[in-house]
């Protein structure tokens, strides 16, 4: 056994601060944070990043990434990021938002930032529920899913259908890149990282708006074990929220 040759092949990225997170066991925010941190390191972005956090469990992202950050009001992160990017076009600006923040209260801000083609990147964590406030219905809650405000399950005729954000974003003119990944298995996590990297590259090249949705588990509010919650992504979420790249202007000849 020659431990002399041993190499550390997987460790905490430098941009992710060495501290315990406040997230529940099996929550996928930690995976999403780490992917972002790895890319900030690999793409040498840490010194030019200005992070905009949102409201929800992920508000504390600013405690976990070692970068400059501002806290946006609920749903307004794309507007705040627009202001930062317009004020400092040479910096790298991204938002990190949950489904309640982005797809409900922040719907106007995300749609218009995307449509203007703001040169920012958006990480959208979709776990079909308001996490921090205790598990209420989100715009992405699936039909039949019980939450604290849909105790009998979300009903199509009463609450409407879950919103597919990536498809909507992909339909907008200013968008350079829109993709949906999942954090439920190793293959999907690696693919999700490639999606985020692509979105970041579109900002760096000044091409346009980049959007990556990440299907994630919220075991606590789904009232499931981490393993059962993780399985739910494959069984229930992916059939409704299909994975893949929905827009990539580098394959279409670019936007004007």
């Amino acid at each position: 056994m020659s431990e002399m040759n041993e190499k550390l092949v997987f460790d905490r990225p430098k941009s992710v601060i060495d501290r315990a997170t406040h997230y529940c066991p099996g929550c996928h925010h930690g995976v999403a944070h780490r992917l972002v941190g790895e890319l900030l390191d690999e793409m040498d972005l840490a010194e030019k990043v200005i992070l905009t956090t949102s409201i929800g469990c992920s508000v504390f992202l600013y405690n976990y990434l070692n970068v400059d950050a501002v806290e946006a009001p609920h749903g307004r992160a794309p507007a705040v990021a627009t202001g930062i990017k317009r004020a400092r076009p040479e910096h790298f600006v991204f938002t990190y938002q949950g489904d309640g923040d982005l797809a409900s209260i922040g719907m106007a801000e995300i749609i218009h930032a995307a449509n203007r083609g703001e040169k920012i990147s958006v990480i959208f964590v979709n776990n079909t529920v308001y996490g921090m406030t205790g598990g209420q219905m989100a715009p992405t809650t699936l039909i039949g899913q019980t939450t604290t405000t849909t105790p009998a399950g979300r009903c199509m005729t009463h609450e409407g259908a879950p919103i597919r954000m990536t498809e909507i974003i992909a339909s907008l003119g200013g968008v350079a890149y829109a993709a949906r990944g999942s954090l439920d298995n190793v293959k999907n996590i690696r693919k999700a990282k490639k999606y985020i990297k692509k979105a970041f590259e579109f900002q760096l090249s000044g091409t346009g708006f980049g959007f990556v949705e990440l299907l994630s588990a919220c075991p606590t509010n789904w009232k499931m074990t981490p393993l059962a919650a993780n399985e739910r992504i494959q069984k229930e979420m992916i059939p409704y929220f299909p994975l893949g790249v929905f827009k990539d202007v580098s394959e279409e000849g670019g936007i004007c």
Binding site: E6, K7, F10, Y23, G30, N185
Partner: peptide, 16 residues
Amino acid sequence: CATICPDVAIKVYKTP
């Protein structure tokens, strides 16, 4: 294991 760990709690060492 490290890739899926939400808490960056696993380090991986490899010997070629």
